[in-house]
Every structure is written in C-alpha cells, then in structure tokens.
Design a protein around this nucleic acid. Structure first.
Lengths: 352, 352
DNA sequence: TTGAAAGCGCTAACAG
DNA sequence: CTGTTAGCGCTTTCAA
C-alpha cells in the first residue's frame, strides 16, 4: 500500500500538501499545478488512503454497526442488510454486522462495535413488537429498522401494516370478491393488529360490514389447516387476504382439495415473506412485498444524515415493490407500502 | 473511552507496562503486584482497547470481509453470514459484509475492504456454479463459501449434493415407496447434477433400476405444475424427492387435487430453501436442510486459522440439521449433509 | 523489572 | 501558498 509519505517524496512535496490535495481542501491554498502533480503521482502510484490511520486522527471511522436479532432464521433480513449496505456504500461507509440473539451476546457485540469505533448503529429487532433499546446504545447515533420503541427517542422505520391490510382488501373488493376472508395470525403481533384494522376499514369504506366469521386467525400448525378448511366449508369465501405465505399455503391446499382454482374461483392476496408462491405461481397470487430493502436503505441514509449533521435527502428511495396480477387484471399491478417514521408519514415512490 | 495513558497515570506507571500487562505479555517481565494493580485500575476505569490504534501499529485489524452476491434475493444467505459471524465473534474478529452483485460493485467493494485493512476474505457466490475468483483477491487469505473454483487454489466448502440425493432417495426407499420420482431443476446447476446422480445411485444400490420417466426436471413456472400433474397421471409415483420447496409445492398441489394425502398416500422429501412447508406441515414433509450456517461457520474458522498460521481445530462444528418424520417414522430423524473441502471429505457431526 | 522513545499513516494547527 | 510540528492510541525495541 502506498502511503502519503511516499507520494510526498515522489512528488517532492510535504505530506501535508499531499493530504490537503487528496482531501480536496486545496482550493486557494495549494498551487493548482502542484496540486495536479500530486494528484497524478497519487494516481500513478495507486494510492489508497489508510482509513484506519485517518480514523485515529479524526475520531470518525465511517463504519456503521448493524445489530440484528434472528437474521439466520428470518429469510428476509438479508433485504434489510443489503438495503443498508447499498446506501452506505454510496455514502462511503462500511457496514459491520453483528447479531444479538441473546441478551448477553447483544451486549458483548455492542461493546465490540464500540471498540471498533463505529460512528453509529442500526438496530433491527425483527420481533415485530415494540422493543426496548439497550441503554448501552442510548448515547450514540441510532436508527431502528423494522421496529419501534415506545418513547420515540430514536428515528425508526416500519411498514404501514394498516395500509397493507387496507390495500389488500381493497384489491380483493375491486377484483369482484363478495366474501373476503382474513386468514391471520393468532399471535399478538403488531402486523396482525394493523393489518386486521386495515382489512376492517377497507370493508367499511366500501359499504361492507365486518363479519367476524370471516376472520380466521391461526398459528403455524396442524389445526391451522383444519381451521381454514372449516372456513371454506362454512363461509365459502371467494377472496382471501393472508397474513403470510404459510397462511396462503393453507388456502391453496384447501382450495386444491375442494377443486377450486386460485385465479378462477377464488382470489388470494398474500403478504410476502418467503416468496415460494410468487416464484411458482405468478399468474395466480397477488403478493404484497414487505419493503425490507427500502427500510434498510432509508435507515442507513437517515443515520448518516444524523452523523454528518445535515438534513436527510428526501429523494433517496431506491426501488419499490411489485405484485402479481389478480384474476381480473391480466397485467401486473404495483402496490406500495407506506413507511412510518416517528409519526410523520411518507410513501415509497412508485417507480414507473 | 479510557486510554492506556490514563490508566498509566492513574496507576502511576508507564504506558508500556500497561500495554504489556493488558496484553498478557507480562509474565516474568513485570512485578506481579504491579501487574495486578494495573489490571485492577483498567477494570475499574472500564478500559476498552482501541482496536484501530492497535491495527495501525500491528497491521492486523481482526476484521474479515464477507463478499456475497445475491444476499437480498436468496433467503438462506443469512444463515451463512450468521455462521461466519458466530465463529468470528468467538475468535475476536469482526465481520464486514459487502455485496458484489455487479462486476463493478464487486471490485469497488473489494477496494473498500482493502482500505479498511481486512485480514482476509470470505467469498460466497451463491450461483451454485463453479466460479472465478477476482484476481484482486488472489493474494489475500481467502476461503470460498458454498462455492468452488476450478483451480482449487483456495479452500472452499459446499454441500455434498450427491449425498443429499442419495440420502433422500434411500429415505424414501426405507419408507416403503415403490415408485420414487425425482422432481428436479431444468437448469444445469451443480446441485441438480449431484442430487440426480445420488438419486440414481441409491436406486441402483437398492437393486432398483433408474426409470427416466420418473425424472421430472422443471423450472419455476406454469408448465412446471402441469408437468408434475402429468407425472402423477402417467407414472403414479408414491415417493417424491424434490429439488426445493417450489418443486415440493407442485407435488403438494397436485396431490391435493388428486385427493392424495402426503404422509398417507405418498411420501415427499424436499431440500429446504424457504421452509414454508417445514413451518406449516411438520408431520408430513421430510426436509433436508442445507447447512448454510455450518458452511459459514467452518469457512470463518478456516480463514482465521490461515491468517493466524495455525492448524484448524477440527472439532469446531456447531449444530447440525434436523428433519421431519416420514410417514413410516412417527419420531423425527436426523439427516446430515457432508461438506467437501478441496477434495478431502468430512461429515457434519450429528448432535444427538 | 520498568520506562523512554520511536513510529504506524494520517490530519490539522501554526509558522513561515 | 507550503512545510514543520504535534499528536490520535497503541506496540515494541532499546536503555536503564
């Protein structure tokens, strides 16, 4: 690795001049010709700054710690990390990922990240519940991803679950479904509450009442499948809003057993976690993708804006989510998710 | 952050003594009493070493770069990363994750990692194909994860696809299936070739011929489902070895339509990518989990052993893979995957 | 057995 | 405009 010293020698100048020029602080301080010569020699010698040495001096490492819980077990965590990475990469930052599945691991990883001198933290809990921020993080720049904290002391971003439920249900109504069931989650998750509320509101807004017999909250187990079968038998819904792929699978399985074809006899809108169906059944299932990538991307941008003490560039949304056609629409449609940031609401822009 | 200097002052000694003691190089060089006093003050003041400053001096950063392609889109990538993290964390290293989806991004991320002075690289291609290592990595400690390179110049680790096929098929034979179909992948992937070969060999070894009419290679699309339906109609298999969850889904869907119950009328062994079925259908599907976590774990250990120039501790396998019962076995069984390291073969130990 | 001093590569006052 | 100087926090000779 070439150092500034070597460049200084090769160009016959002092290190400070090299430093100034290579950091773009030379305007009006260094003779432009000299500056050019320095830039050239640096280029020629393939100079790469030693960021560690710089950090030692400046107390800024351009490293961000990403703390996550349950990365391995939640297949979509990768999206968040990649979103954060992409954003940071273009901002000249590096991502250090650790995982804090246990309380103990969490604290020890936080300490490790501090030893490495990260400039700030991204924290993702994945629990889909309101969480508590470790006190050891409280004094650092911090943004929560796909999570929220009670006191709202830190910026955070989450999908708008209400809107997911609202949009999905509206979609089914527009597709002409007369009896729309919600196949939800029997555990008290934030997503469940929000989506159910959205489902109900959409029904109301379209002049339909909420019929609790069409609400079917289940877990991931054997009885779940039987519950969905009972739903088919007693209520005969022709539209289904499914909490996730597992729930969608119950609907598919039951439909197949009943000789009903998805996309012809019934319509299904699911929220995407695993994508099995999106991969295999494009023409039949409408999938609402959760904006994990976008959340990671936004959170990273937000964090850096805090660190660098400048306003967040609002135009910084990457791509949006795509969905498959329902039975009434032969061509794909887009559904967007709203992201909530500490009370203020903004949409993901729909790219074409 | 407390520094060594501050400790030295507080303890009334010099920084060098503090350094020696805190690095455990004091035996026979520093008065044990003094050493204790130093350790105490360090403890009391909550000393945390500044790893960057150390790196500047030692040229060792204890940071490892993890380069991956397609993390966001492949749901199981998280397992590899977490395996690597867990291993590195206990070895006192930190993981810097980047992604190199495009050729350009790849090179620029590699450069970034070098600027940060990583001690070595973990490279994961995910393409399930033999790949080429960027020349810019050639001179660094490097281990390939879930990938292999033609020239075998670098240690690498992959699942033993042959064995997956062999074990899955044997499992179905033992379950009493008389006609075992392979629902595979129509693309020329390493996994496809190996698993098919294993499937055929298992049939041979159990005195059964290979019947190509029972081989059904499909893509992820509409025709795939029809192909599987045709397989059911013309061949009436009662055992299915499925390349992945998507293929398993075709089998489930078709079975449901035909009124056949998985676990009663037919048996299915699938290789796990998404886990939808494992989550929802425990009693019915046998899942072979790909050892992504283990590969990440092993690769990280291997890399560090290279960096630290010491032999790899062979006992270092974390957990192994679990599978669900088939129709003939009421209790769970374990299936292990073999990992291949540059020609030499070793098994993942089965933890009880 | 301990401490002084040099230096890793870089930045930033300050002098000239 | 340019160079000298003094560190950032730590390791590591080398003297004492």
């Amino acid at each position: 690795m070439t150092t500034m010293k070597e460049i200084a020698q090769a160009a016959g100048v002092s290190v400070s001049s090299v430093s100034l020029v290579l950091n773009g602080r030379d305007s009006g301080r260094i003779n432009p010709q000299l500056a050019n010569r320095i830039r050239e020699t640096a280029e020629r010698m393939g100079y790469q700054p030693n960021v560690l040495a710089r950090s030692l001096r400046t107390n800024r490492t351009y490293m961000i710690g990403f703390i996550s819980v349950e990365v391995a077990t939640t297949p979509y965590a990768g999206g968040m990390i990649q979103g954060a990475q992409d954003a940071l990469s273009s901002l000249g930052y590096m991502l250090l990922t650790v995982n804090g599945d246990t309380e103990q691991a969490l604290e020890s990883e936080i300490r490790a990240l501090k030893r490495y001198g990260v400039d700030g933290f991204l924290y993702s809990a994945m629990s889909n519940r309101v969480m508590t921020v470790p006190k050891s993080l409280a004094k650092f720049p911090l943004v929560l991803v796909d999570a929220a904290e009670e006191t709202n002391r830190f910026p955070s971003i989450e999908p708008d679950e209400f809107r997911i439920g609202y949009d999905a249900t509206t979609r089914l109504i527009e597709a002409g479904c007369s009896r729309i069931a919600y196949v939800g989650c029997a555990e008290p998750m934030v997503a469940q509450t929000g989506r159910l509320a959205g489902y109900r509101q959409a029904l109301m807004d379209h002049g339909r009442g909420f019929d609790e017999r069409l609400q079917c909250d289940v877990l991931n187990n054997g009885p779940a499948l039987r519950a969905v079968e009972a739903l088919f038998d007693t209520e005969q819904p022709n539209g289904f809003f499914c909490f996730n792929d597992a729930r969608a699978w119950y609907v598919y399985e039951t439909a197949a057993r009943h000789g009903l074809a998805v996309g012809r006899d019934i319509s299904v809108v699911g929220v995407d976690n695993h994508r099995v169906f999106a991969e295999t059944l494009e023409p039949q299932l409408t999938t609402i993708e959760l904006p994990h990538y976008e959340m990671g991307y936004w959170a990273a941008n937000k964090l850096v804006s805090m660190i660098e003490n400048r306003p967040l560039n609002e135009g910084d949304w990457p791509h949006t989510t795509a969905v498959m056609p329902l039975l009434d629409t032969p061509s794909p449609v887009k559904v967007h998710c709203t992201l909530i940031e500490k009370g203020s609401v903004r949409d993901t822009p729909t790219t074409a």
